[in-house]
Design a protein around this nucleic acid. Structure first.
Lengths: 244, 244
DNA sequence: GAGAGTTATCGTCATATTGACAATAAAGAT
DNA sequence: ATCTTTATTGTCAATATGACGATAACTCTC
């Protein structure tokens, strides 16, 4: 801090959220359509200004709830990183703290026609250039995808994409979608069920689907994210590793 | 963003830096002694306000340079995470973006008597409670240590603690200091030299030390951090893993 | 300058983990 | 019943890891 105590600059601070889910085997991201300039009509990450008295995570959760109309958001929310403040918004310097939500597929309530409509979009279409994002949100999305990939490798957070109870095949579908690879079902099963402190067998089976019924699992207690605790992200050894 | 366009709140934004190095086999952190309230006389992480027109990394580098008197900082600087804005500074809400510097041991130039003097302190003494940190800097340090540990596991950044050219034993000392474990010199040598794309043999040897001369290595080109590129942090498989 | 002390480096071996893939189990569909 | 589909258990070779023995190549001491 300079000794002469200049009045510190103040910046508008926003939170943005990269909400990821897996739908029909494909990784999707939650985007809103902007109704105002700049980037009117373009797609953008949900987010908004941090209010006085709020923590960053709180603000991210609030914005997401507001823009999706969903009260109790499922999944795992964590901070991703901060961007700016220079040159990311034509209106002036804005610092944004990006967040990452890994969640099971939840329905987005349609907002009134004057609200910015949030919806799931396949990540593939954004990366492929079919969809364009406002501001520096494409870069933030890139970083989020990178983070998500490594989270699966070293933490039990792949399960954050699943419902409370899930089958090994559903969990495998998450890994395949996030990593964009195929995984051998037999080796995946061995590793997932063989990793101490990861999964817990519920005791019941799926019914009604095609093929042999599958056993249901949930996250083991010691692997569940404890709010307040820094997400002990590192499983040793890595849970699984993307092939190629 | 709310539809009614309320004037967005603005926050003072600071950058803090957790600068780590290894001195005499022990992990050290760079701290300054505060000359003004609050926490006058207490130790704190170097840092200061982000100026208009600055990027976060720039600001962190500038503050560090100012407070150490060192122009061209060695090592690797990256963003760690953001904290606040609520309740971390008695004077009011301040958002801080913490950074992490992994650097070889460099001498801190002594500043004038009116400046906040920066110096290296053993991390052990901070964790042990001998030294107390201002604000929420103890928590930030904790997060930084966690990050540093996992960086060594999955990236070539252990070499950021070393000079341009180094021996395997020097590199091993880094791992041992950061992880707080002993590593088998023979197995470490095998893994470090056997990991493709990590090290490059310089061709020369050390001289003058006790014992057999050691071969000098440098980071392989493909492992060197490329500014602009998101630090591809993940080596597959993990470079090495802490024991216990 | 011979031996002692030190550090670097290479090698060996038992064990654990991984990747590839065969075989069997248990359902629904025809 | 038989076929199709998905789940789960095994097997086996290749690879990586942890624990150590054995040398190599210096400096230091006397």
């Amino acid at each position: 801090m300079p000794a002469s105590h200049p009045a510190p600059e103040r910046f508008p601070v926003t939170v943005d959220v990269v909400a990821l889910t897996v739908r029909e085997g494909e990784l999707n991201v939650l985007l809103i359509t902007r109704l105002i300039e700049p980037f009117r009509g373009k797609l953008a990450l949900p987010g908004g200004f941090v209010l006085v008295g709020e923590e960053l995570l709180e603000a991210a959760g609030r914005e997401l709830a507001e823009e999706t109309g969903v009260e109790n958001l499922p999944g795992h929310l964590e901070q991703l990183g901060s961007y700016g403040p220079k040159g990311r918004d034509p209106r002036g310097d804005v610092l944004t703290v990006a967040h990452l939500l890994l969640a099971p597929d939840f329905p987005v309530l349609s907002a009134g026609s004057d609200a910015e409509q949030a919806a799931w979009y396949p990540v593939r279409e954004v990366l492929g250039g079919t969809l364009e994002l406002a501001f520096d949100h494409a870069r933030i999305l890139d970083d989020a995808l990178e983070r998500a990939k490594s989270k699966l490798e070293y933490s039990p957070l792949g399960a954050a994409f699943c419902d409370e109870e899930f089958t090994i095949a559903q969990l495998r579908a998450v890994y395949e979608a996030v990593w964009g690879t195929r995984l051998d079902p037999r080796n995946f099963h061995r590793k997932a069920t063989g990793t101490p402190g990861f999964l817990e067998e519920v005791g019941r089976m799926t019914t009604g689907d095609a093929g042999r019924p599958a056993a249901l699992f949930r996250l083991a207690p010691e692997a569940r994210p404890t709010p307040g605790q820094p997400t002990r992200a590192v499983l040793n050894p890595p849970l699984m590793r993307p092939r190629d």
